[in-house]
Design a protein around this nucleic acid. Structure first.
Lengths: 242, 242
DNA sequence: GTCTATAGTCGGATAGAC
DNA sequence: GTCTATCCGACTATAGAC
């Protein structure tokens, strides 16, 4: 389908700037209208670029879409990566004794705090999110880029931290489900954005609202991690008869 | 924009059946390709109907879209409504003494269980969800239909139950946020469907997987409701300095 | 109420001048 | 590397036969 006749990496010239403008505009336009709904004319106009620049630089509309997914994955990795790596570092740097429970809890809260900030604040995330969620529910090749780029790492870290806190193996089904439910608490404010605004009577989610969300999620994390602490042997109870 | 030249309600004739087929097909096609991406040709073909039937019965593509949103709201209300009304009934039928904490907890779990079943099982929900989430992140007139139709009621019930369980007013900011985070735990399995499948190593979410999700969410509800029980005076702690 | 045929518009991609 | 002009297919909606 794709015939990308250019695979430029080097940059700095005028063409490189055009590619950047097209990608930036594409995040918004693809997010708003979907892949099929976004016309190359709209994409080019939003970027202040020529229509023919899309087939020229990206081989076509699909190439621009995939390039946009890569860009998003890089931006997210840029923001979450440092925190994630620090968490990973602290995890391997210490033993899993009962003494580091508080440390794990803090790391978990920090990871979710950072993720909430990334996901929920208005800035750019609202544009990424529409594209990402679309890929979640109707995956194309772009989903591989997004998942491998960042989601996998975050989910694994969450499961590791929860495993430590609850004494259940990180690859246990219940542990992995707990990781997902924690993430879901944060993601909901993007994926059900309009409903959340109405429920809260907010007209947007700014720094104050973000802080309120983070506070509630932190409390929930404490409750969930605390309630199931040391139930390594009971974890099977949540497993379900087939 | 819309000029629906027909507003048929009575039914049973052949035209009514065509309208139904078009709406059913539209849930899938609009969900997959988005509003702009869904062509009237694709919509008509998927429904086994003639292209001209869309402007005829619904006044145009937009009319079909809004009719589809109404249909979805009705189907969801059909499924969640009975449980929600029973919950609402039991809530008004008793006093808010400490004795009914267990009852509130059961009702809350039942509501979320039912919602998980609705949201997460493959059957039809995957089709609705794409359309609904699109509206959440980029609302059009269809969002009003969906929100007023069902979401408002569910969110209010959740907040009421959580308020009872924690001793915090249902309209308190923290209580409403808690309601959203609970819902988010369930919704994530739809809105981040592809990532959830990979995280769990599942290839689909069937009855067994649904049961595992419900079990974890139930545990989380107990933990969250239990941990913040009777902190009516502390609720302000989660409020945030402006 | 449903169909075919068609009008009028817009879609993505390309050719070739600069 | 960027532009204009253009091809051709697909789009939504309508007209009018049945």
């Amino acid at each position: 389908m794709i015939s990308s006749r250019r695979a430029r990496v080097s940059g700095g010239d005028r063409g490189d700037e055009t590619r950047q403008r097209l990608i930036k505009a594409a995040i918004d336009v693809f997010g708003r209208f979907g892949y099929e709904g976004a016309s190359t004319r709209a994409l080019a106009e939003a970027a202040g670029a020529n229509l023919a620049a899309i087939p020229y630089h990206f081989g076509g509309k699909e190439g621009l879409y995939l390039a946009t997914a890569s860009y998003i994955a890089e931006r997210i990795a840029e923001r979450v990566g440092p925190v994630a790596e620090r968490v990973a570092g602290e995890l391997t740097g210490e033993e899993s004794g009962p003494a580091d429970r508080d440390a794990c809890l803090r790391l978990l809260q920090e990871l979710l705090d950072r993720f909430a900030e990334l996901v929920v604040l208005e800035e750019e995330a609202g544009q990424w999110a529409r594209l990402v969620v679309r890929e979640q529910m109707h995956p194309t090749r772009a989903f591989e880029i997004l998942y491998d780029g960042i989601m996998k790492k975050v989910l694994r870290l969450l499961a590791t931290l929860i495993g430590r806190l609850t004494g259940v193996a990180p690859d246990n089904e219940v542990t992995r489900l707990r990781a997902l439910t924690l993430l879901g608490q944060v993601l909901m404010f993007r994926t059900a954005h309009a409903a959340a605004l109405r429920q809260m009577g907010w007209d947007k989610i700014g720094p104050r609202e973000l802080a309120a969300i983070q506070a509630v999620v932190r409390e929930n994390v404490v409750a969930i991690a605390g309630a199931s602490a040391g139930d390594g042997d009971k974890a099977g109870a949540a497993e379900v008869r087939r």
